[in-house]
Amino acid sequence: MKEYLELYWAFFRIGGLTFGGGLSMLPMLKYELVEKKGWVDEETLLDCYAVGQCTPGIIAVNTATYVGYIRKKLSGAIVGTAGMISPSILIITILCLFLNNFLGNVWVQHALMGIKGVVCALMLNTVISLAKKSLVSPLCVVIAVAALVLALFTDSPTVLIVIVAAIAGIIYEKIKGDAKGKEDAQHE
C-alpha cells in the first residue's frame, strides 16, 4: 500500500509542477523518477518517453502509465496515471467553478482580448516548431499541406486524416523496401 501511495504522490508532484506538458516534462520526470526515487534508469525513462510519444493520447499520461506499469504492472499503471491527472482535475475544476462568474465582467473582457493576442503568438510558435521538426522531406510537406487543406476546407474527420496519413507512411515504407530489395537482387 505504501508503495502505491508513493507512486501516486510522485506522479501527483510531476503533474502538479510541470507547465506545458510534453517536452518540458522530461527534466522533471528525470529528477523525480531517476535521481530521487531510482525507480527506472535514464535509458528506460527515455524508452518510456519515446513510446509515450508514438502511442495515442497525452504524452505525460502515457509516460506515467508506462513507468507505473514497470513498477507494479496494471495496478501501477492505473495508480501512476491517477496521480498524474489529479492536479489538473483539481486545479481546473476549481478554476471553472469561479471562472464562469467572471467572464461577463467588462474588465475581464478587456484582459481576455489582450490575452488572446498572446495565445495567437504562442500557437504560431507551436506550429513553426512542429513544422521544423516534422517537415523533413518533400513527402512530409505534401502530407502536411494536404492535411491542412482537408481540415480547413472540408468536413473530413480529424481521426480519418490521421489514419490515412499512417497508412500512407506504411505503404511508402513498403514500396521503398521493395525497391531496395529489387536493387539488391540486381547487384547479385
Binding site: V127, S134, I143, A166, Y172
Partner: peptide, 11 residues
C-alpha cells in the same frame, strides 16, 4: 509516424 507527424502538424 514518419507521415503522421506532418499530418498532425497540418491539422
Amino acid at each position: 509516424f514518419y507521415t503522421i507527424r506532418p499530418a498532425v502538424a497540418g491539422l
